[in-house]
Design a protein around this nucleic acid. Sequence first.
DNA 1: CTTACTTTGCGTCATATTAACGCAAACATG
DNA 2: CATGTTTGCGTTAATATGACGCAAAGTAAG
Lengths: 226, 226
Amino acid sequence: MLKFHEYRNPALAIDLVVFGYYEKVLSVLLLNRNEEPFKNGWTLPGAFLQMEERFSEACGRILKTKLGMEHLFLEQLYSFDEPGRDPRGRVISVTYFALVNPRNFGLAAGKMANDVSWHDIKKMPELGFDHKKIFKKALERLRSKILYFPVGFELLDEMFTMTELHELYECILDISIDRRNFRRKILDSEYIIDTGQKREGLQNRHPSLYKFNKKLKQHNFNLNVS
Amino acid sequence: MLKFHEYRNPALAIDLVVFGYYEKVLSVLLLNRNEEPFKNGWTLPGAFLQMEERFSEACGRILKTKLGMEHLFLEQLYSFDEPGRDPRGRVISVTYFALVNPRNFGLAAGKMANDVSWHDIKKMPELGFDHKKIFKKALERLRSKILYFPVGFELLDEMFTMTELHELYECILDISIDRRNFRRKILDSEYIIDTGQKREGLQNRHPSLYKFNKKLKQHNFNLNVS
DNA sequence: CTTACTTTGCGTCATATTAACGCAAACATG
DNA sequence: CATGTTTGCGTTAATATGACGCAAAGTAAG
C-alpha cells in the first residue's frame, strides 16, 4: 500500500448551485467563463479547494469574490467523481447549494456583473463540465427538502405574506397547491409566526406579515402535497 | 488565480460504513488498525482514492480486499473536511454507506479475519479519526431513508417473513412498531410481494415468504411511525 | 393425539389528516 | 360607488392512522 507522503491524488474543486427567487421565478446563478475550457460557455460558480481551507470557507470565498454575496444558507449536496468531467484532468467536485434573496444583494435579474447572471430554472442554457447534472441534483434536493423543512424562508424577505410563501412553494415544486389547505398546514406546523404587522402601503389595511419561527424544532412538518 | 497544473490539494480518502443485520442485531464493520495513527484502535474501513479511480471503484476495492465482499448496496453519504481530522495531514474523506446480509459472505459475528469485525451499533468502541461522526451520520441516513424507501431488503435474505421484516424495522429505528399496523402499511405500499412459498422446515405449514418488489416506483411509501 | 402456549393473518373502531371547495369580509381599481 | 380580486376562516367526505380484539395456524411437551 501507498505511504501517505507518496500519495498523489485528483484535484478537488468546490462548485455551487446558488438559487434565488425573485418575482415568482426561481433562478440559478451562472458564470460566463472567460477562459478555456468552455470559454464563453455557462457554468456553475466554483473554485479549487485551497490546502488548508474548509469547504464552507471555499464556498464563502466563491460567493464573496465572484458574486459579492455573504452569509447565505449553504448545504452540502453531493460529490462528483466522473473521470472525464473536467477536460483538464481528474477533478473531484464537492458541491453545495445555496439559497439567497436577490434583493438583499441588489442583484435583480440582469443587474449583475456581465459575466454572472441569474437564469430561470425553466430556461437553462447548456452548461459546461457535468454541471447540468449537478444542477439537477440540487433542484431535486431543494424540492424534496422543502416538503419537510422550512428551507424556503431563505429566499424571501424577513417578513412576507402568506400569498408570497404560497407562490414560492408552487414555484419551487412546479405544482399548484390549494391556497386554503396550504395556509392551514403551514400555520398548524408553527413554522411561521404572525407578526401582527402590515406592510405599509397605499391604502389603510393589508394582509398580515409573517416571519420564520426560528425556535422551531425540526421534524414536525410534512407538507404532503399531491 | 492558480493555474490548473500548479494546483496542489488535500489528499482524498474514501471511507465506508458497512451495515450488517444478523440475529436481530444491527452491526457495523470495523477495522483494527495495524499501523499508526490509531494503531490497534478501531476505524471504519477506507483507502485513498487512486488517480483514475471512481468512488464506487474505490468502495469495491475496499470491500473486496479488506472485507471479501462484492456487489453491495452503496450510497454516497457525505464528504468530511475538517483540517485536523487526520493527524498525518489534510485529508478529505468522501464517505459511503453499504448494506450487507452477512449470511451472503459467511461472515457471522466473530468469524472474520482477526483485524475486521462486526460491532453492534449499540456497543460501539471508540473510533479513530472523526469516524464516530461519520458513523452517526450514516446511521441517521439509514434511519431516515428506511421510512420512505425500501432500503432494508438489502439486509435480509432474498425471501423473508413478515416477522423478520418487522423485527428489522424495529431494530434499525430502535422503536417498537405495532405488528398489525406495520403489516397493513407494508402490504398496502406494494413494496413486497407474497411469493406464495413457505420455508421448508420441521412441520407442515409455515408463514408466507415475501420478497422485495423490484418493479416498484419510488415515492409511494411513507412509514409514518410514532 | 391432546393440551397449553405462541405466532400469524385479518378485522374493527375511534380519531386524525387530507383534499376539495363554499363564502364573506377586506381590499383594489376605475 | 360599483365591480372584481384577495384574504381569512369554515365545512365536509374520503382516507389514513393508532390501538387493539380474536381466531386459525403453528409449536412444544406429555
